[in-house]
Computed example of a mutant assay.
Amino acid sequence: MSVTPVLQEERFSPFVRVTMRIWVKSYRSILALISPFFDLLVRLLIAQAILRSGLVKLGDWDTAVNLARFEYPVSWMAPETAALIGVLIEIVAPILLLFGLFTRFAAFSILTLLAVSQIEYVAVDLNLWLIAILGWYVLRGAGAFSFDRAASAGLGGSALPFARPMMRLFGWLTDCGAPVWLMILRFWIAATLLGSAGILSLSEESKFLPLNSFAGLGATAATILAILSIVGLLVPVTGLLLILSLSTLAVMGLHPDLSLYPMLVFGLLILFGSGYMSIDRLASRWLESN
């Protein structure tokens, strides 16, 4: 008879093991209750921002074409075509995103538009934070309050061509791709923190890191938060500390240009975890096995 299971069971008293499991389950239940409302709020905020931009351009088409021709020309596309595609994306995709209909495709189209703007035009932190959020929706899809989620059960058993393979692909992206994105977000935030602290020397990479968003955050605090993000230790606490730190800087007037979107990215990490390659994930599995 193997004694290994017995030894594992004797590491903690039954009271400690049961208590830890109850705390973990309660914490996950609370997050599961909050996450659909947070998901809806995020989709609403992104949709209104992108839709507003599209309506402004649609209301003054000549200006939209001139912007595409002179301000942010796309070298491989005619200005009229670029303006038309941009306006269509900025009007149709946000509406789909808001209602959670074809969410992954809507998020990908907006993400592509923002990526082109970031690379071809002026690099701004806002685009990067929006891309970070939209990448999450490309991989995970919308939450419970969405048409996609309501139709998923029926499509999974549908006889429509490609319906079942597509739903299996979406399920795989949600289960495997979304944790990868959370991991990437952790490393990306850590690199930005280390860059703002002066520890990483950045040149061309700076257009892909929202360095200005962490302006005013001390080097020591940035380094500690970066290390916690890299190893994936207490990621929900790290996310809360980032929100509190940046909010405090904004209230004190030390960071007047801070937007809401970094807070939404930190909220994703708080609610959905650290993803792969993290101490938090290992600790969670260890608790479940003991």
Results as ranks from 00 to 15, higher is better:
residue 257 D to K: 10
residue 216 G to Y: 02
residue 166 M to T: 11
residue 156 G to E: 11
residue 167 M to N: 07
residue 186 R to T: 15
residue 187 F to M: 15
residue 142 A to F: 03
residue 217 L to H: 09
residue 210 P to Q: 14
residue 129 W to Y: 15
residue 149 R to D: 10
residue 226 A to V: 03
residue 231 V to D: 00
residue 142 A to E: 01
residue 251 V to C: 00
residue 152 S to K: 13
residue 138 V to N: 04
residue 169 L to M: 05
residue 208 F to I: 01
residue 226 A to E: 02
residue 196 S to H: 13
residue 215 A to K: 09
residue 267 G to E: 05
residue 135 G to H: 02
residue 171 G to E: 14
residue 242 L to P: 09
residue 194 L to M: 13
residue 204 E to D: 06
residue 255 H to N: 14
residue 131 I to Q: 04
residue 240 L to G: 15
residue 186 R to V: 14
residue 131 I to G: 01
residue 143 G to K: 05
residue 176 C to K: 14
residue 144 A to K: 11
residue 245 S to C: 02
residue 234 L to Q: 07
residue 247 S to G: 04
residue 227 I to H: 01
residue 249 L to P: 03
residue 258 L to D: 02
residue 138 V to S: 05
residue 188 W to V: 11
residue 259 S to I: 03
residue 204 E to N: 08
residue 239 G to K: 01
residue 232 G to I: 06
residue 217 L to W: 10
residue 205 E to R: 14
residue 141 G to V: 10
residue 127 N to F: 08
residue 146 S to C: 01
residue 199 I to H: 06
residue 144 A to C: 05
residue 155 L to V: 06
residue 222 A to T: 02
residue 189 I to K: 05
residue 255 H to D: 06
residue 155 L to H: 05
residue 161 P to C: 11
residue 181 W to Q: 08
residue 259 S to N: 03
residue 261 Y to M: 12
residue 251 V to F: 01
residue 148 D to C: 11
residue 258 L to Q: 06
residue 188 W to P: 08
residue 225 L to K: 00
residue 218 G to R: 05
residue 234 L to G: 07
residue 135 G to S: 03
residue 199 I to W: 10
residue 191 A to W: 07
residue 161 P to W: 07
residue 157 G to W: 05
residue 209 L to A: 08
residue 168 R to E: 13
residue 243 I to P: 00
residue 255 H to E: 07
residue 200 L to R: 10
residue 233 L to E: 07
residue 145 F to E: 06
residue 147 F to T: 04
